[in-house]
Design a protein around this nucleic acid. Structure first.
Lengths: 192, 192
DNA sequence: CGAAAACTACCAATTAGTAGGTAGAAATGG
DNA sequence: CCATTTCTACCTACTAATTGGTAGTTTTCG
């Protein structure tokens, strides 16, 4: 039927709640109410909260990496790739009533609440994204759409930091509009 | 002399705990153990947790603004001011065993756990910092140490976002070294 | 049937917060 | 000057609610 897999619905609800309230701001009780099944049933699918967080991180990480890979592989200028990449983050902020953050950005803030396996997944996310941004920058350097930089890796780290931080700052004050302004400024600095 | 005010010691402990674990990762019990007085005594100084968070935000905001003002007023190039400003954030990350974040950055992540008064203080922090960065940039444009930009405000927002995000990203993976690299790249982009 | 998925009904631990008491310093007032 | 009161800072001991998690039972469905 129209019913999505319960496990998926739980992860969806968890992701939404965490993106706006944080790991420790979301409880199994919240999930229960949000999904519409009892708390114990959530435990049936994800025995412990750490299990759930890890499953969530895994899903997010893979989905995100695939989406970005499609951008990296596409036949457009490096600058356009970078713009589309930034648009992914813009989408996150725009979605939902209150401003939401990158799941991984939020989890980094509360990284002390994760287990080793979770921390590793966060590191993997950062590593993968950095490499993918490097690929976009190199592509842009090759086609002339981005200004040549000595260290693409340092630029990539800067881009990721700016996007993660931009989500945070924008959600506290200026909203999507401010985030757009930050992104435009970033792209502009990398263009000349 | 040797004894610091208890209220101050509580705020110090709270700030340290929040910077590494987050608002919801710190309890009055944690504070009790950290400060060395009973939990009820913490309530004597700060009746509710929200009271404490607001007091903490107020203190942090004023201290930080004063420190930055001293930098803005100093007789050095705009670029040097910006470097010193970034160094404030670098100091935060280096302090403490585990990587700590900007108090406000952490609180933005968990902004849903604050009351209206707290949210306003966060907004004030962002606004003040942005204005102060604008002042540094304009100073740098005037003395030629920074490249002229159309919109100093947009650049300032980018700088703040990069620093806040840089703290997050660096604490998950590369540590102070990675943060330094990001800062250098940022300054470099604003120089040419 | 039989397994997966849901349920009811718990539990122990922790949470923020309260009630009420004590020791000592500071203010008050005859 | 001394006795009383008041205030501050802390304490022990509690509460009500919520937390993550478990045990065992029923429902659903291929």
């Amino acid at each position: 039927m129209g019913t999505t897999d319960t496990k998926t619905r739980i992860l969806d609800a968890a992701q939404c709640l965490i993106q706006s309230r944080g790991i420790n701001g979301m409880s199994y009780q919240d999930l229960s109410e949000s999904v519409g099944i009892r708390k114990a049933s959530i435990h049936h699918h994800f025995p412990s909260k750490l299990d759930m967080l890890n499953a969530l991180l895994q899903r997010y990480q893979h989905e995100f990496a695939d989406t970005v890979d499609a951008i990296v592989q596409s036949k457009i200028t490096g600058k356009s790739k970078l713009k589309r990449y930034c648009a992914l983050f813009q989408g996150t902020l725009a979605t939902g009533e209150d401003g939401k953050t990158c799941l991984c950005g939020m989890m980094i803030a509360e990284i002390a609440s994760l287990d080793d396996s979770g921390v590793q997944k966060i590191r993997q996310f950062v590593r993968t994204n950095t490499q993918q941004i490097v690929a976009m920058i190199e592509s842009g350097m090759a086609d002339g759409s981005l200004a040549t930089q000595k260290s693409p890796k340092a630029v990539a780290e800067l881009v990721l930091a700016t996007l993660e931080g931009g989500l945070m700052v924008a959600r506290s004050s200026g909203g999507p509009q401010q985030f757009d302004s930050i992104v435009n400024q970033l792209i502009s600095l990398l263009t000349r």
